[in-house]
Nucleic acid binder design. Sequence first.
DNA 1: CACCAGGCAAGTA
DNA 2: TACTTGCATGGT
Length: 219
Amino acid sequence: MNHQRRELIFSIFQHLLAVLGPQNWWPAETAFEVIVGAILTQNTAWKNVEKSIANLRSHGLLTFDSLCHAPIAELAPVLRPSGYYNQKSRKIKAFCDVIEERWQGDLALFLSQDMNLLRSELLSVSGIGPETADSIILYAAAQPSFVVDTYTHRIFMRHGWVADNISYEDLREYFMSCLAPDLKFFQELHALLVRTGHLFCRRKPLCVSCPLSGWNGAG
DNA sequence: CACCAGGCAAGTA
DNA sequence: TACTTGCATGGT
């Protein structure tokens, strides 16, 4: 069972890598920028997130030390292009407050803790759910927690590889239970699946032209 | 015009 | 546990 899953996942990975090339995610300069981007992209097109990131940079708010001292009233208008700006400004502040109060402002120390403890603490922050937490762990903390995003779910359920109503945690376990915890592999596979989603499974009922269409894992 | 985008929390039954 | 709804701008 696990062996067959692993073979399927490896063959998908190799095929997408050959077709699309290495993605080298996450598109950010610093760990803090990854975290901010992960929150801003919740149910939001990345193109709009880029506008907010650019706004933050021009306002000098793209570092932990500057942003954690900025009031929400200053933050919210800057985040306007990526939507839900009142919610997201509170979420980012809630995260910064945890780092300030529980980790004395040491973001690197926070990110270097044991992966499962890190995941639990991230999930306890209001505004950080499972996908955002796993994105932060995989790309900001550089620890191997598999990220399940909407495209991963869509691609796997449309091919009939998993049930369409599978939960986030169960789909994450689908990957993590049969794969070695390989940071670079988790990063690249997630990036390739999102790229595939952007190109072939966006605004469409089926992945008709998806490179995985008709794929059965035998390749 | 309607619908969607790299979710999440809070409310309801 | 399993739905439903609000959050909000910008692209197709």
